[in-house]
Amino acid sequence: MINGGTALVGLLGNPVRHSLSPAMHNAALAELGLNWRYLALPCEQHHLRDVLDGLHAVGCRGLNVTIPHKQSVAGLCRKLSPLACRLGAVNTLIPDSGSSWTGSNTDVNGFLAPLETHIDWTGRRAVVVGCGGSARAVVAGLQTLHLAAISVIGRQTTTLQPFVEDLNLEEAPLDPLLDSDPSIADVVAASDLIVNTTPVGMAQHGEAGAMPLGESLWSGIKTEATLYDLIYTPRPTAWLQWGRKRQLHCIDGLEMLVQQGAASLRLWSGHDDVPVDAMRSAAETALKA
């Protein structure tokens, strides 16, 4: 029951109306016995600073941040975690003891969680399709797996090259490829993990039957390869349906959403035993509604 002691946590973004985060977080809060409620809070860019100041003033216990604010909110934090600083993107805000926020990023944790329970990725090869905001967390995660190669496929040199230069590490270099490069087919055929970070195949974009880079590219893929699509509407996407028919290991973005949310909740609450199963079940139920 909501009462005078109920505290607020929530999601800032625009739009947020169809977010699954309230369902999965409120399920976890109920299991933890915390008198908190998680709300989706739409926020226009020009109101962002005022909204953050107001939420801190009323004792908000923590916030998630989504499109389009992940990068702009970083400049409004008093402090950033090393990872958030490197990525230039924040998806989790923790109130500090003053009147500001500490910015963190749990997207990398969320992305890695389903991979770390699968196989040892040391010495294997990965391909990332896309070089937008989501791809930053994906690349940062892949760079911790001791892979032999990480290729990043983009549409334009003007966005691909700065992306690679910004995130490149000497111990985990990135190989940029334009989607028009004829060598892509060979790179895909040699890869053990392919991650789609683009909206191609997303129902909301009106292209639910589409596959990233076109279906013909994937004909030479390894039979033991893993396909990881950050999209989870539709579930599965056409790309993952194609992969399942060929008995490839397939992962969609719902588990990343659940795991990054669980990591955020640990930061806000101090609880290590966050009920991830309850969060996953609530998210799946909300997705079907």
Score class of each variant (00 low, 15 high):
residue 194 I to S: 09
residue 166 D to A: 15
residue 265 L to S: 04
residue 43 C to W: 01
residue 137 A to N: 12
residue 67 I to T: 14
residue 232 Y to H: 11
residue 33 G to V: 04
residue 10 G to V: 01
residue 209 G to C: 10
residue 68 P to Y: 14
residue 30 A to S: 11
residue 80 L to I: 02
residue 59 G to C: 11
residue 274 V to E: 00
residue 162 P to M: 12
residue 145 L to Y: 01
residue 98 G to Q: 14
residue 110 G to Q: 06
residue 35 N to E: 15
residue 82 P to H: 02
residue 52 L to R: 07
residue 208 A to F: 02
residue 262 A to K: 07
residue 235 R to V: 04
residue 143 Q to H: 01
residue 250 C to W: 07
residue 108 V to F: 05
residue 207 E to T: 08
residue 223 T to F: 00
residue 81 S to E: 07
residue 48 L to M: 10
residue 261 G to N: 02
residue 256 M to Y: 06
residue 196 N to I: 08
residue 162 P to W: 13
residue 258 V to C: 11
residue 269 S to F: 03
residue 1 M to W: 05
residue 81 S to H: 09
residue 282 A to F: 09
residue 252 D to G: 09
residue 20 L to F: 08
residue 102 T to Y: 04
residue 249 H to F: 10
residue 67 I to P: 10
residue 213 L to M: 15
residue 34 L to Y: 14
residue 238 A to C: 11
residue 37 R to T: 11
residue 156 Q to D: 11
residue 114 P to R: 04
residue 15 P to A: 05
residue 103 G to V: 00
residue 90 V to C: 12
residue 114 P to I: 05
residue 21 S to E: 07
residue 202 M to D: 09
residue 258 V to Y: 09
residue 3 N to M: 05
residue 273 D to S: 11
residue 196 N to P: 11
residue 147 L to I: 01
residue 229 D to F: 08
residue 183 S to W: 01
residue 157 T to W: 07
residue 62 G to S: 05
residue 80 L to Y: 02
residue 106 T to W: 00
residue 215 E to A: 15
residue 172 A to W: 00
residue 91 N to M: 05
residue 275 P to C: 12
residue 278 A to Y: 00
residue 212 P to Y: 10
residue 259 Q to P: 00
residue 151 S to H: 13
residue 90 V to K: 07
residue 51 V to F: 03
residue 112 L to F: 08
residue 288 K to H: 14
residue 9 V to H: 00
residue 148 A to K: 10
residue 34 L to M: 13
residue 58 V to F: 15
residue 166 D to W: 07
residue 248 L to E: 05
residue 179 D to C: 15
residue 131 C to I: 00
residue 100 S to D: 04
residue 33 G to I: 04
